[in-house]
Each structure stands twice: as C-alpha cells, then as structure tokens.
Design a protein around this nucleic acid. Sequence first.
RNA 1: GGCGCGGUGGCAGAGUGGUGAUGCAGCGGACUGCAAAUCCGUGUACGUGGGUUCGAUUCCCGCCCGUGCCU
Length: 314
Amino acid sequence: MDRVVVIGGPTASGKSGLAVDIAEAFGGAVINADSMQLYHPLDVLTARPEAEDLARAPHRLYGVLPGSERGSAARWRTMALAEIAEARGQGRLPVVVGGTGLYLRSLMEGLCEVPIVSEEIREMARARHAAQGGEAFRADLVARDPASERLNPGDTARLLRAWGVLEATGRPLTDWQSTAPDGPPPGMRFVVCVIDPPRAALYARCDKRFTLMLERGAMDEVRALEALGLDPELPVMKALGVPELRRCLRGEWTLEQAAVKAQQSTRNYAKRQVTWFRHQLLDKPAHGCHAVSSLYSATLRDAILPSLEQSLRD
RNA sequence: GGCGCGGUGGCAGAGUGGUGAUGCAGCGGACUGCAAAUCCGUGUACGUGGGUUCGAUUCCCGCCCGUGCCU
C-alpha cells in the first residue's frame, strides 16, 4: 500500500469533511496540510476539525506548533513525511488535507536544496528593505542577481527571500532553484483530489462559517492569543480573522465591522486558493486528479468514494 | 411653492472645456522554504432633454430625482 491521498481546495469548501470520510472508509489517518491549523492557540478560528470528526479517524499535525514559531514548507514536509511513515507503519492510509497548496506541492514534488537562511540575515533583509524601499532594494538585488529581475518591486516577501539567500550563501536564489527539486518521496503514489466549487456558493459558505466561528468563541481565542503578547509579524497573528478581531478588542472596530472585514478577507483568500489549485495542480496532470466541482458535504460521499477507491487500487 | 446644494463605473470618492484620479468589491493571473503570506492585471462611469462651442462630464437653460433651509 504505497498510496497517499492528497486533498486540496479553497477554504470552507469541505476538504476536512471529505478527508474524514475517506479516512473512515478506508482506515486512514488524516494529516494536516494547512499552514495555520498547524499552530497551537487557534482552534475555532482556524476551522480545525471538531471532536466528532476527531473521533472518526486519527488526526495528525493539528495545533502542533506554538504560535511563537514560524512554520515553513520544508518544515511541514519533514513533519508530514514522518506522519505518513507512521500511518503506514500502522497499516493506515495517509490522507493529507489542507489549503496550503505550496505545502501540498512540496510534498508531492519536493523542494530544491536551498540552505536555511538564519533569522539574523532575514532581519537584516527586513531592515535594509525598510530603509531603502522596494525599488532601490530590488535594484541592488538585480545588480547582484540578474535573474531576480522577474520580481515585482512591491513583492516584498520574495524580494526578502531572494536577498537573504544570496547574502547567506553567496549564490543567487534562482541558481539554487534551477537545480531539480528532490522529487516525490520514493515509494509514494499520490491520489489527488481537488475541490473547486462554484464561486457564489463558496463565498456564501465562507461568510456563514465566520459567523459560526464567532458563536463558537473565536473572540475568546483571540483574547487568549493577545494575552501571549506575540509579535504581530508572526504567521499566527495573520490568520484570517485575527487582525480584524484584534482591532475589535482595541475598540477600533465594532464586532459587526470586524466580522464584515474578516469575511471579506476570507473570500479574497478563497479566490487566491482557487487560482492556485487550478493552475498549479489541476492544469498539471502529473498526478491523476479527481476534481470535485461542488462544495463537499456528506451527501456527496457515496458519489465520490467509489471512484477514489478505484484510484487507490490502480 | 421659494432659495441653496447635489446627482460621476457595483460602492466610496477626486477632478477637468479636448489624453475620463484613486480606493474597495468583482473578475482574471502569478506563486519553489513566513504561503490564511506576498504580488500583478482588468472598467466605452459623469441623472435627463436642449443650447453654447471645432469639441462638453466640465459652461448656460428646462425637466427629473435627492437633500437642507424658508413659506
């Protein structure tokens, strides 16, 4: 049994539900591939599976990192590979599910060997960028690494990364990236399933879900998070709804306003994910992809599981 | 009824006698180690009918609608 199920799709599309259904049906273990569900303090706000689902199948990599840390694709990949190995050791089918496409792809295709950039250097990059601005920062970078020409002056994240790698290794990032990625882990075959629901329905579910999160204590979670006094630049602090609810706590926005804003960012995020999955996964049929064109709910289970079972057998 | 003010793309909101800001949303796209991040692209909009003008969203008149004050 060398199969690994991989489920992707936009937020609120029903991925987690599909994952448990599959895990339950085929004796599997659900492994999280969502960058935010990895962190510890946020449970409701990050839409982690609830007790009922947790009881139906083992769930791994949920809430395993403290919010004070920063995850990364490579870090997740290492953890995921370990969990996959463990599930297999127990005779379970690994079901990897999450909305972080980059993570999913890093698992399936591997990453290029790029040395780790120290926090000191990253900090230097940030300071330098802040001091000279995007244009100048980019100009300096391009002078040393012509290939980074393709980066937009406003694309701070990538600019910082490119600069950091160059500074840390003396070699341009594009250089490192031109070497082939380490490829799929040996002995692993992926059965990919992507949910790509109609836009209107997806947005409606995003909105509804946030309202539900508030009813289930999202505000208390943010209060607890706030009490930790974390650096607002940390990934957890940027989870959807956190910035908005924090402003509410500070009295800058009413709960109503915060909710509207958070719902908006959720929809924007869902849109980005749809684009990512369509072009980075669905259009690249290297992995046989099952596309589900509607929001997933238990009623679709019998329509989807049989074809998946077929793929697992092939 | 009188006087004033205003009617700009889905919304907010500048502005100009001739090349129609901008923001948000929407839509499309990018994406190799902070990715729920970071970014890019995208609109035959000037209430209506006349007039002035080489040319009106911009100037003038009527009308409609909204708004404030007065009666």
